[in-house]
Design a protein around this nucleic acid. Structure first.
Lengths: 258, 258
DNA sequence: AAAATACATATTGTCTACAATTAAAATCTG
DNA sequence: CAGATTTTAATTGTAGACAATATGTATTTT
């Protein structure tokens, strides 16, 4: 209703300095950590979250924690059940099928837009993420690899700069990351080769986005997806579809997180 | 002394029976009403929401209201600003451009899946929504028309039954509905003709979905989109892009004015 | 008088306590 | 002993009070 008023300089000396972990509120750190634990399956799909336990762990009270859980529900990390609390989003065979339908379309569209709209600053962040991704592969760190891969593709999502596609991409990345954690095995030779190819494709993404080649970026997204799809299917199809995924709420109780 | 042992009769059958206002909690009604007011632009894009005012209006306390606002933020209805409260999601020229990019793709994909997966019960609900939609057009009721159109397409989204595409569709429908409200004018002859065509296309959607014709359903989605796009552009392009939309918080000077 | 600062007000963020609902355990009954 | 019912414990949902932050106004200083 009014023009942008000049702010008092009080705020400046508090906000700046370090944007690192220390300045951030406990609430934000709680949300971020819950996301991380869900993505790495430290919190298993289908498990229920205890409000009291979590709020004490992060030293906040339950009302703000419940706000966080509502937000995480909106982002697709958890599902809320009335009077029964928050459940880590389950992964069923139906969600897998839906994932296979939606992923190539959204990934291709987002990668195309990213090549068209990426800023130099974003490209720098993408390169940083790629360095961390390769380091995690080299160290055989499953969780970090999964998280850095997620960050890489999330940055591409930011580059696309489209608020209508972003929520679907985020939802896809959550489950793609969790699936990647499920099937990770550092010793398997075939998988190691696939990871090497994936890392090379990431470098190609950087080059194509930097060159602004939208068509090639979209094509690469499809190729990148096909690689991942083949890896997933090599686990899912042979042994009769018994995937070690979380259970749906209707199934066994499986109460309790940790 | 707590003389409150008044036991409400078993809540087992609270879900079915009447979906009317009485059974639902005040909290759920508050959320639903806020959504409705945002979709109809009774709450204008960019306007800020007062927690105390709203919580008193719906007779709930602020903590549960804040949970609702977090959820609405996750759904894309509002944007939260730290220490500055919730703002009705603004609509800028950039969001319009992004809308034009994402809408045809998502609409086509969802319509295709809907034709593949729709259940008889869902088709019945779709027909009901269509009746209400036509009634609203006949009565010249802008808000109801917009809401029933939103409901129609939201049901198609449910039919698609894909949790990865659903969030993007929801986000699109929010702004599509708001845009439709903005440009509604019951007297304009050309627009009345467009609405008639749109209503007929809805009937075609029902027929194609009932027949399970995925390809035709996807094609119809594109045609339906083109109709809506032409209507929007007839307002946006001629008079020099001055759209009566809400403003962004930062009031950025809108870089790259096409 | 203009700008900056200090103050006052209003709004958001959080905590503790309490109420309500649910799930589980114990009891009672056939 | 099986099954249903009451009782009990645990967990979620809400309210009201308090703290922190931001905004708007008044005052002071140059």
């Amino acid at each position: 209703m009014h023009a942008v008023t000049v702010r008092t300089n009080r705020v400046s000396d508090r906000q700046e300095a370090a944007v690192s972990d220390e300045t951030r509120s406990k609430k934000a750190m709680c949300a971020e950590d819950l996301r991380r634990r869900i993505l790495t399956q430290a919190l298993e799909p289908g498990s229920y979250l205890d409000e009291t336990e979590i709020s004490e762990a992060y030293q906040i009270s339950r009302p703000p924690l419940r706000e966080i859980l509502r937000q995480l529900a909106g982002e697709g990390y958890v599902v809320l059940h009335e009077n029964r609390g928050a459940q880590v989003a389950p992964m069923t065979h139906k969600t897998m099928r839906n994932f296979f339908v939606a992923a190539p379309m959204i990934y291709a569209a987002v990668s195309r837009l990213a090549a068209q709209h990426a800023t130099p600053a974003q490209i720098m962040r993408l390169k940083d993420a790629q360095l961390l991704f390769r380091a995690a592969i080299r160290d055989g760190d499953a969780a970090t690899r999964a998280l850095m891969n997620e960050r890489f593709h999330a940055i591409i999502g930011e580059m696309a700069d489209n608020e209508y596609l972003a929520p679907s991409l985020r939802r896809l990345l959550i489950d793609h990351t969790r699936i990647g954690m499920t099937f990770y095995s550092p010793r398997n030779r075939a998988l190691a080769e696939q990871r090497a190819v994936a890392a090379d494709q990431h470098d190609q993404f950087i080059a194509l986005i930097e060159a602004g080649d939208a068509d090639a970026s979209a094509d690469l997204a499809i190729a990148h997806w096909e690689l991942s799809r083949a890896e997933i299917e090599s686990f899912v199809t042979p042994a009769g579809m018994q995937i070690p995924l979380g259970r749906a709420p209707g199934a066994e109780p499986e109460r309790g997180a940790s």
